[in-house]
Design a protein around this nucleic acid. Sequence first.
DNA 1: ATAGATGCAAATATTTTGCCGCCTG
DNA 2: CAGGCGGCAAAATATTTGCATCTAT
Lengths: 151, 151
Amino acid sequence: MTHRSADERRYTTIVERLKDADHRLTPQRLAIIELLTHADYHPSAQQLHQQLLPRFPSTSLATVYKTLHILTDLGEVLELGFSDDDTRYDARTTVPHIHLICVQCRRIIDTDIQPDPHLIEQLKQHSGYRILGHRIEFYGLCPDCQDNSGT
Amino acid sequence: MTHRSADERRYTTIVERLKDADHRLTPQRLAIIELLTHADYHPSAQQLHQQLLPRFPSTSLATVYKTLHILTDLGEVLELGFSDDDTRYDARTTVPHIHLICVQCRRIIDTDIQPDPHLIEQLKQHSGYRILGHRIEFYGLCPDCQDNSGT
DNA sequence: ATAGATGCAAATATTTTGCCGCCTG
DNA sequence: CAGGCGGCAAAATATTTGCATCTAT
């Protein structure tokens, strides 16, 4: 077998998980998973729906939401809620990772940088919390928007 | 003048900011600011409204939202949006800080622990983003919920 | 006195749900 | 061929807005 990209592997993984959990592999679901995995892409439900329409003109938003919830329950998709923007969905990896969000174009990219384990230890000690997960986002201007702002 | 707590000082600061920005100091607004500042408390708009009702039975949710937006625009309140919960508001400090969120009781507490500056430098270098701010949350079980889960 | 605030209700926006006919397995 | 799924529309939530009235300054 020839080279497969990380995106393709991730796609396959999620499809397998769906099948294993006895969910049906409908064309709509496969298309949604493809969109979620093939691109540095953290779309909203609306965006997914828009991108689906050319291929499946009758797709409904409800189907998009239902699929996203199934994948979220399986732990394959992460929801990112905001107060001033639609919820965005991240299916690229199940490994917790830090997000970088452009405050201008709203692009969200993943990083492979991990938070310092020492920080987590500190938090435990100070608070008594049992730490289970995290959400870490940095806000700023992406390279493109830095360039365009000089117009 | 006698001792004033950090909460009281924070309350006064926000009230001054409102006045300086030529907003009126209505009883409703003062009460909202008091609720926001006097407690380790990151309430939702609904929660604020509920707590306001005993003192101001006719207060409307719209007023709560309007006040929160004014304070957010002034930079005195931080909005925390989620996908599965109402937006929560943090008025306790304007210094960026890490939140600890209990996944069971949804209590949100502040910490005074700062992210490693080295991490931020790393992110800049890897991504080319100009970093302007952050949102860092750790999820887990607060001490109370750890105790109660052993029932 | 008057600009700005409140409170009510209606409007918006987003997400969820119910139901029925259809398709996957 | 049976139960899950997609699509439509209605419902449920959360938040915003318009407007008449009231009030802080």
